[in-house]
Simulated assay, not measured.
Amino acid sequence: MSTGAIIIVVVVAVVVAAALAVRVVRGGAGRRERVLRRHFGPEYELSVAEHAGDAPAAHRELEERLARYRELRTGPLSGELRERYVAEWAGAQELFIESPERAVATGDQLLARLARDRGYPSDSYAEQAAALSVHHARCVQGYRQIHNAAARAREGLADTEELREAVVHARPFFEELVKPPHHGEVHQVPTPAPRTTHRSRRDSGRWELGLGHTKKGGAW
């Protein structure tokens, strides 16, 4: 075989090897993305957006969260503590009519304590939210929303509708953390039945704000 032919064969082999390497890398990246998307759900898109569309950087952050918090040991609430949280949440919703800002602040603090009592980190909000995103990726955004709304309310920047939406979106997160152990479905937090058949002025305000009873018996 001539020297020219050998050079051509070598070049072709290098090109083929490079193409195969690229294909393998892309395939690995694709599997990596699918695994992260499946585990984190909406958290995946949020992380990519926070990294200005840089998917590899988002992948690294999410994988670091998994490595750090996947084996975190958490436990369910005792029956007594669970009942206490359900009552506190109901009290916060009643407070919303009188003071949306205080209700949101109360709800934010309640969720932080609830997460702590379930066994999640409590040294900082950022660490707690990161750990929760590994175990409750589908609803942790509700915690972030009410936390951010509470901060905006302290600065006088949040209107009533923003605060109402924050509490509405935080409810699934609350239900997820407060539900009994081995409970297959999201628990619908019970709301006390009205004492009379007529709506009070406070009840009317609740319905106007969209905080009335849901079809399944919950509120907010």
Rank of each mutant, 00 (worst) to 15 (best):
G28S: 01
A21I: 07
S78Y: 07
S2D: 12
V168C: 08
L114W: 02
R118G: 09
R84T: 08
A153M: 07
R171I: 04
E50D: 10
L163S: 05
A90E: 07
F40G: 00
N148Q: 15
R154H: 09
H136S: 04
S133D: 02
H135F: 13
G142D: 00
R152L: 13
G91T: 07
A58V: 00
G142E: 02
A130F: 03
A103H: 03
A17Q: 08
G217W: 05
E43Y: 06
G205H: 12
R118P: 06
Y44L: 04
A112Q: 09
P192K: 07
A153Q: 01
L177H: 06
A193E: 15
D117M: 02
G53D: 08
E83S: 15
R164F: 08
E64A: 14
L163Y: 04
V168K: 15
L36R: 02
A149V: 04
P172L: 04
A219Y: 08
E165M: 15
R144I: 06
I7E: 05
E185H: 12
G79K: 07
S122F: 09
Y120D: 01
I6V: 10
G30H: 04
E61M: 02
A52L: 14
T106F: 08
H183R: 07
V9K: 06
V16G: 04
S124Y: 03
T191K: 10
T160R: 14
L114C: 02
R164N: 08
D159W: 03
L72Q: 07
R154N: 09
W207E: 15
R84F: 12
G91F: 02
G79V: 13
A158K: 06
A105Q: 11
F173I: 00
E162W: 11
